[in-house]
């Protein structure tokens, strides 16, 4: 088993989280904006060919953070545009990310049936 992949995942994932933490603490950016910003940054960095090497190196450390969600969107669009032309710009993103998004909503519905909010 390749133990280094765990180490690199840990490091890259950790660093991506630290960058967001600095933004939260030093500016008044709300967590929701961080999420949106990270996904959009993921798309942009992938478009600029910067994110692909990070994924190669950091494995899950680069795909699990929300920039990885942006990476998936961008990769999906690339693939779809190559296959079906301009229409791919519309279909590619969600196609590549559909499993995660659908799972989030389906599970959330399940959890809301099973659980109730608790006092903090």
């Amino acid at each position: 088993m390749d133990l280094n992949s765990f180490l690199y995942s840990f490091l890259v994932g950790g660093i991506l989280c630290v960058i967001a933490q600095i933004f939260i603490d030093k500016t008044k950016v709300t967590p929701a904006r961080i999420l949106v910003g990270y996904v959009v940054m993921g798309v942009i960095l992938t478009a600029l060919q910067v994110y692909e090497p990070i994924v190669k190196f950091g494995k899950s450390g680069a795909t699990v953070p929300l920039t990885g969600f942006g990476y998936l969107l961008a990769k999906g669009v690339e693939k779809a545009v190559s296959e079906q032309g301009l229409l791919g710009a519309l279909t590619g993103g969600l196609k590549a990310t559909s499993a995660g998004i659908t799972a989030s909503f389906a599970f959330a519905l399940l959890w809301s049936l099973l659980f109730k909010s608790k006092e903090k």
């Binding site: 490091l11 450390g61 953070p65």
Partner: peptide, 9 residues
């Protein structure tokens, strides 16, 4: 954050 990514890995 690193741990979550490593668990994912």
């Amino acid at each position: 954050g690193g741990l979550i990514c490593a668990i994912g890995q």
